[in-house]
Amino acid sequence: MDTSAAIRKPRIAVSACLIGAEVRYNGGHKASRLCNELLSQHVDFVPVCPEVAIGLGVPRAPIRLIGDPAAPHAVGTHDPALDLSGPLRAYGQQMAADLQDISGYIFMQKSPSCGLERVKVYQANGYPAHEGGRGLYAAAFCQQRPDLPVEEEGRLCDPVLRENFITRVYAYTDWQRLLTEGLSRGALIAFHARYKYQLMANNPQQYRVLGKLLGGMTRDDDPQTLGPRYFSQLMAALRRCASRGNHSNVLLHLSGYLRNALSDEDRQEIRQLINQYHAGIVPLVVPLTLLKHHLRSHPDAYVLQQVYLQPHPESLSLRNAI
């Protein structure tokens, strides 16, 4: 039932300081327990430090963002004449092109090169603007790779955001595998069928939109053209975090496949646990574990292929906390 088992180990780019590399301006690091103790067992990290890559030493004088928060410049904190905006943006574009085999990226928060949001952008009066900016390397990278799952390490402390990010990483890896096997009309439809209930949990409206997109395919439609369009919309849909209500709805739908195989008591127990999950009394893993238990005894081929049942390795325990 582990639908992620057949998928290769994902490669995730990461700000090098987060995995313990001493590359920060002060010669230190920002080693992340999440990256080093949990995720490192399941993914291959690709460390990147754009500031070192463009030639800055360790230790070094710090840099900061100045000017318009929507289009800031990166300059030396002590030497504003040192403008590193061009090199950082160019390196972001270069790495976006070079790192084609990654399935996600974890950035260092608040960094003038790597921060994804709320990075301080200083004004002429010496104070930061109320509106935060984005690190220049990260902005350039993400502009070139809009479908790639990206997140800041700090936000991954939130269990819902963490589970959502890792779900998207494995979906991206799944798509990369499909591309190596070759896109076809049948392969696209089969891929979408496996993601039915994951999409229903994250974004039920987009599930219907994507179904219509594929349902309207004709023999004249080239899967090589339609496929990337479909996948961009899929990744955008999965960025929305699944609510308890949507999860509960999906669990009820899945339990419906067992209605004729289970006793009244078993059906009542499943419904009770789904209700308890919906009320926030138990985590998602509780009703899901019971549902999978019954599916082992009463297998249904269509349900067992659903990514929703195991979108990432069970040993990550991501659904124990949501």
Rank of each mutant, 00 (worst) to 15 (best):
M1D: 05
D2K: 12
I7S: 01
K9M: 05
I12G: 04
A16D: 12
A16E: 12
Y25W: 15
G28A: 09
A31D: 04
P47G: 08
C49K: 14
E51S: 09
V52D: 05
V58C: 08
A61F: 03
I63E: 06
L65C: 08
P69N: 06
P69Q: 07
T77I: 06
D79C: 06
D79H: 14
D83T: 11
S85H: 05
G86S: 12
L88T: 10
Y91Q: 12
L99A: 11
Y122R: 11
A124Q: 14
N125F: 04
H130T: 15
A140P: 14
C142A: 15
Q143S: 15
P149D: 07
V150N: 03
L156I: 12
V160W: 07
L161S: 11
E163L: 03
N164H: 09
A171N: 07
T173V: 02
S184P: 08
G186M: 05
A187Q: 10
A190M: 08
Y197Q: 11
Q198K: 05
N202T: 10
N202F: 03
N203G: 04
Q205Y: 10
Y207P: 01
V209F: 02
V209C: 01
L213T: 00
T218E: 03
D221Q: 00
D222C: 00
Q224K: 14
L226H: 00
G227T: 01
R229E: 08
F231L: 10
F231Y: 15
Q233R: 15
L238C: 03
R240W: 01
A242P: 07
S243F: 09
S243E: 11
H247R: 14
L252T: 15
E265C: 01
I274N: 11
N275D: 12
Y277W: 07
I281H: 06
L284V: 06
L284N: 03
V286F: 04
L295E: 01
S297G: 14
H298A: 04
H298C: 02
V307Y: 09
L309Q: 02
L318V: 05
L318F: 07
